[in-house]
Amino acid sequence: SHLLEAEPEKVYAMPDPALPDDDIKALTTLCDLADRELVLNIGWAKHLPGFSSLRLADQMRLLQGAWMEVLLLRVVFRSLGAQDRLVFAEDYVMDAAQARLAGLPDLHAGVLQLVRKYRAMGLEMEEFVTLKAIALANADSMHIEDAEAVQKLQDCVHEALQDYERARHPGDPRRAGRLIMTLPLLRQTATMAVRSFCSIRQDGRVPMHKLFLELLEANA
């Protein structure tokens, strides 16, 4: 229930109507949306039980390691009810043709693979918020100062997921494990996304806000 309460509000993409409909406009819209969502996601992390009592340096490492996984998981959850489209925001839905125009066909296909996986499992809101917290605590940064405290945070969320599954899906003892086993694909897709946006940044044609740039650089 803590995790459900901590869930951030909706964000709208609000593409600039003055820009021509090309790849630059699509990527500008996505980077701007991501930057605003990142601010919300940092606020979200601070509301996770135990996160704010971690050392500040470790809070930073976890977010620097998992920010894209958290962003993508939110897109994936929003897209569960859409047909082969990614719902970046209610006002910004992208199909395969639009993703190709934006130069992101592989990323689009990769995220859709996650969507299909979770849709087949019937991913629930409670499971989504728990997985997102596990992904954050699972960032696997090499430079965590207090690994024991981070492990404790992860154990706490993991236990919440197990409790939930025991209560809601007692006939499916493998469900919690199957959900956790989707995290490698999430990590892989997030790595692909970070690489794509790093190369977009190097091209220098798309304006990016500072927080988004800062986190891209942390992964470069």
Partner: peptide, 15 residues
């Protein structure tokens, strides 16, 4: 740390 000043600031804000 200087490189990550926005993240640092957002984490330190009390909201």
């Amino acid at each position: 740390k200087e490189k990550h000043k926005i993240l640092h600031r957002l984490l330190q804000n009390s909201t």
